[in-house]
Amino acid sequence: MRRFLPNLLRLATLAVLVVFLFRPELFEPLLKPLVQANAPAIYNQGSLLSLTLSHLATVFAATLAATIVAVGLAILVTRPIGAEFLPLSRSLVNIGQTFPPVAVLALAVPAVGFGEKPTLIALFLYGLLPIFENAMTGLSTLPPAIVEAARGTGMTGWQRLTKVELPLALPVVLAGIRLSVTISLATATIGSTVAAKTLGEVIIAGLQSNNLAFVLQGGLVVAVLAVLIYDAFSALERVLARRAGRG
């Protein structure tokens, strides 16, 4: 029962979200009290569903690219051939995390102009850091006995990486991706200030026209997405960690 209830809650939240995205007008009575008499209570300058999908697509594309690059780099610096890069990468990650996402976004605009691109770049760059850090931690803190055993059984470097090291580091890497996705989901909304198609449009429209209902629905959709995705990742990590004997 203790496990059942939160899952039921999640399922219900997901159901409400899906209904809201497909038939937002059903929720109009709930949001109506938040707006002045004749203002619309449901976002009407575009489809909430398509904004949500493009929001998710932007985050997904940026996170995928960030994952590939960050895990690739982490693999490189944890091999003997890349060991010289390890100390600097660590301090770069540390410095990089002090870059506010908004600043990264703003700085990307001069380089690539308006639209989706600066958002993608900002999300990509900012997403790199947690994934890289976690992948590096995961790959460099494997139990020495297991790494030794993998060499001892005659695995080649590539086999050790793909059959032992990456599978064992996977839960930690996933935790990094989860962090990165959660930050990106929220940061993507700011992308709408530079004309990216995200749920930020809804929020900004609300701020501009003093429409609290818009702000609320934009913010809540993003928050619910973030919570659900966060939970899904956590569940996946738990399963993997249990299988990897770390649970």
């Binding site: 139990p143 006995a145 030794e148 055993a149 993998a150 032992v164 599978p167 990897a244």
Partner: peptide, 11 residues
């Protein structure tokens, strides 16, 4: 090759 603490692959 067998080592102390067995070195079994946990996954």
């Amino acid at each position: 090759y067998a080592i102390q603490g067995h070195g079994l692959f946990p996954h």
